[in-house]
Every structure is written in C-alpha cells, then in structure tokens.
Amino acid sequence: MLGLARVLYLTAWLGAVGGVLLQLTRPKGLEVWLYPLFLLGLLLAYRQGPKRAPRLLVHLAGGYLLLEVFWAFHRDPESPAPYWTGLVYLLSAFAFPFPQAVGWAAFWGLAFLLASWPWPSLYQGLHFLFAQLTLASMALLLARFRELYGQARFWKTEALTDPLTGLPNRRAFEMALEKEVARVERGGPPFALVLLDLDHFKALNDTHGHPYGDEVLRRVGRFLVEGVRGQDLVARWGGEEFALLLPATGLEEALEVAERLRRGLERLGHPASFGVGAYAGEEPSAFFGRVDQALYRAK
C-alpha cells in the first residue's frame, strides 16, 4: 500500500506540471510569463515534502486557478479551468486545521467569484456560484468527517487496549463476554472462559525490578496469542492476570487448551495457575465469578 501511495503522490505532481505546461500551448497575453513562475512554485512545493507541501500548494493552486477562471469567463469560454477550482478547497481542507481550512476556502471561493465577474450570462454565473459552494462544502465536510472518524477510532483503541501488552483490556473483554453470552442465548454454540494468574510475580518484581516484570507480561501476552486460535480473545485482566475467551468451545476442549498453555508457560520459566469454565446460562458476572473461584482454588 505504501508503494501505491508513492505512485499516486508522484502522479499528482506530474499531473499538476502537465496541466501548467498544457496551458502554455494556448494563445495568451502578457500573463503567459506567469506560468514559468507557477512551475517554479511547484518545484519549491515539491521540495517541501508531503507534510508541508499542501499548505504552499493551496495558495499556488489558488493563484493559478484565479488567473484561469478570469481567462475562462472573459476570453476563452472553452477553457476547462473552472472545473479545477475544487482542488483548492480540497487542499485547504486537508492542509489546515478545520477553522483555518474554512477561512481559506471562503477566501479563494470569493476570489474565484470576483474573477468571474461580470458574468457572461446569469445562468452561467449562477451555475459557477453553486458549483463553488458545493465543491467547498463537500471538501470541508469530507476532511472533517475523516478527522472525527480518526479521533473516534483513536479513543476507541485507547479505551479498549492495555498500553503495556497491546492486548484488549478488561473493558474490552467484558464487552466481548457480553456479546458471546448474547450469541449463546440466540442459539449459538457454548463458549469457555480461561483465567490465569502468573505465580510468584510479586517476588519476580521485587528481585529483578518492574521493567523486567513488564517485559515478562509482554512475553506472556505474545505467547498466549500465538497459542490460541485466531477467533479466540486474549486480554490482560489486570496486574499479572490474563483472560481467554474461547468461542464455540466446550469444557473438555478448554481444559486441554489451558493445560497446553500451562505447560508452555512453565517451559518459558513463567509458571501460572489456571481457572477454566464453560458457560452454563448464568449471568455473565456469576459465570466469571465461578471461573475466578476455580483460579483461586488452583492458586
């Protein structure tokens, strides 16, 4: 995907340069000397890199299209320039924070309308006006929706992920447990729950320090994820406790999984105690309490 993005990025620059060069082939007046300046501006913007270039391109494209709109409305009605003004709004929307983007879009939209005045006809002028309003609004809304979606996705990820291990956290596990209970109540297959607690973890922290203990938790998390199916959920419940949700799994199969993981952790030098249970139709909190009691007895 990164390679495709690079190709699209270069294609956009080639298209911009090609468009300016194409305009040089059309007969113009003294303003033809402005086009080499636009080409120089494109080169300077390209050298800014993909993060900084859009802000320069907003005004570079605005100035270029301002000239082209004036040309299209007063000298060459066949010029396609008015169709390209949406590029300025799109660049503004993604180059600046939302309030600034609205301001720059309004500035260039007004400039384009002034460049088109006086209109050759009321129909043509109103058509251009409504097009600018639509293009600017859609570009700004698109950028705003993308920004809000990104924020919502970020906070959702932050709220449901354990920062130390990268595993789903307690809240995420509770939500998954409730969803699995609802699925069983609709007639789906039963599921199982496995809880595990690392043995002697406090002594390990006291002896080797908390950074070492943190690395152990990350290592155990990776081992558990690699040791179960893709459909199973591994979460950090808290402290040195982990929880595994095993959909479509009976008690005997869950016991086999727990025993395999217990032996594997013991080989890694991280012994743990396990509690295992299969859902039997009780309340989720009662089910979890039952498995937690099994873990307590094992401990």
Rank of each mutant, 00 (worst) to 15 (best):
W33C: 05
G63C: 14
L43E: 03
A258R: 11
L87Q: 00
R170M: 00
Q132H: 15
G103F: 15
E31I: 12
D232H: 14
F173E: 00
F73I: 02
L2R: 12
L167A: 05
L251R: 15
T25V: 09
E282D: 09
D199Q: 08
L14Q: 13
L204P: 00
R183M: 14
E266V: 03
L40N: 01
R219N: 03
G250F: 01
R75D: 07
A139N: 04
K202Y: 06
A139E: 07
L42P: 00
E256T: 12
L40H: 01
L65C: 04
W117H: 03
R290F: 08
V220I: 07
R267S: 10
L198R: 02
G18L: 05
L133G: 15
F191I: 11
L90Y: 08
M175L: 14
V220K: 03
D76T: 04
V32W: 13
G125D: 09
P271S: 09
H59Y: 13
F223K: 04
F70L: 14
L21T: 11
V20R: 02
L56I: 00
L87Y: 00
H59W: 15
P54A: 07
L39F: 06
A16H: 07
E256H: 05
S273F: 01
F112D: 00
V184E: 13
A182L: 12
F107I: 10
P120Q: 12
G86L: 11
F287R: 06
G277P: 01
W237V: 00
E226Q: 14
G49D: 05
E283F: 02
L164M: 07
E241P: 02
E174T: 06
K156D: 13
P36I: 07
R183F: 14
R55E: 13
Y35W: 13
L217E: 01
L268G: 03
E241T: 05
Y279K: 05
M138F: 14
L177T: 05
G187N: 13
Q293H: 04
A72M: 08
L261G: 03
Y89L: 05
D214L: 05
L217I: 05
A258L: 06
T207W: 02
A95Y: 00
P50E: 05
S92Y: 03
E253P: 01
F96L: 11
V228S: 06
R229D: 07
L129N: 03
G62W: 00
L40P: 02
Y9N: 15
F98K: 03
P77V: 07
H59N: 10
A143D: 09
